[in-house]
Design a protein around this nucleic acid. Sequence first.
DNA 1: TCTCAGAATTAGTCAACACTAAAATCTGGA
DNA 2: TCCAGATTTTAGTGTTGACTAATTCTGAGA
Lengths: 228, 228
Amino acid sequence: MNAAQAGDSLTRSVEDYLKTIYRLTPEGRSAGTSEIAQALDLSPASVSGMIKRLSEQRLLDHAPYRGAQLTDEGRRVALRMIRRHRLIESYLVATLGYSWDTVHDEAERLEHAVSDTLVERMAAALGHPTSDPHGDPIPAADGSMVEEDVVPLSELPSGIEFSIRRVGAENPELLRHLAERGLLPGVAVTILERQPFNGPITIRLAEVEQVIGPEVARHLLCATAGSE
Amino acid sequence: MNAAQAGDSLTRSVEDYLKTIYRLTPEGRSAGTSEIAQALDLSPASVSGMIKRLSEQRLLDHAPYRGAQLTDEGRRVALRMIRRHRLIESYLVATLGYSWDTVHDEAERLEHAVSDTLVERMAAALGHPTSDPHGDPIPAADGSMVEEDVVPLSELPSGIEFSIRRVGAENPELLRHLAERGLLPGVAVTILERQPFNGPITIRLAEVEQVIGPEVARHLLCATAGSE
DNA sequence: TCTCAGAATTAGTCAACACTAAAATCTGGA
DNA sequence: TCCAGATTTTAGTGTTGACTAATTCTGAGA
């Protein structure tokens, strides 16, 4: 029985590494050392050392110079952290007056401190939500998660109506900017005009026309309004 | 500017030491090294090392071989942790269905992770309570706290009515035992008979007579029913 | 006053995790 | 195929905070 299976004596650092590597490795890809280092704001050397330790604990698969992937156990831990994070965000927004732009940092610390009991009580109090305030899906307690196919608004064609499903951003200023313009998960938008050379995009949202920059549009993840 | 004043980069360990030393040093007393070690379940040598570090950070006053006391800054930190702990306990019991016997461990972890913002939101949601589910007073945000004079039920005379003000215990089984018998903060009790040689104590509580052991009675902190 | 048991401290390790600097390895063009 | 630059790993350090073992101090009783 190794440390990962016994209880959960995982450190904060380990939990953060696993969560980050999960994010960086969709569909069986590998995460590079410096990619992880950049995401966690650490030196590549530190990451290299931690990767070795996590491999020994069977939380990562790692071939030197070839990048790292989560093992099943590592993925289980990562998804548990993501469930915690998103449920905590949902709870704080729903019941304690947090706004979606300030809730991330709080959840980032709490996710390492809450018990399973507390997480499930919060989930129950909210009626077991399936997505968080940013539209991100909340993994189920058994670790399963359905990820809807989404496309950044910046890459969508004009003329058709789409709905914003997720907002892939943590930057508080950007999130406030979006909220002020009504660019929230669940909202339907139509692209009216797109200027060339990565220029501004004109959209219609609730009968109102707006112009947004491509940098902003990149974070608005959409699906065709009819789908789901 | 030292670490204690800048932001609050205090570690979990440091916060736990300060909280424990606060508890062990009422009225200007000093806490001995092994006393602290026992309270934190650490070796005396470890505590000795930490005491030295905390003295250098001006969180403790320490004369070698003479015990340690909190500085004003150390006491400030300790009271902040106690406020957090007791507000978290109150919140979890009031809104998330925790019982007073299970809430301690959860609060013990969360108190190191919550922001001031979250603590104050919880306080506001509860209407700024002044005591927690065990009857312990909650320090105000400015660090002030009024400690009522209380006496263990085991040391009270017979015949007079007292009210239970605080329950000085963390042990979940003991707390459940007390709750089942209605021995809760705010309840009025009268001692009917006390058997000698540290024997059982007969009390009346809400018209019902009960017999409790002296070990249990020691944790019931009372004041004369009329006071306050 | 002396002695000695108990309390406290110091000395020396260890593990987790971070860092910089240096060495090793991989990879994409010439 | 070979080399240069990028990526990754190793080597060596530092800090925090725990440990055991050895040493030193204190205070109470003879």
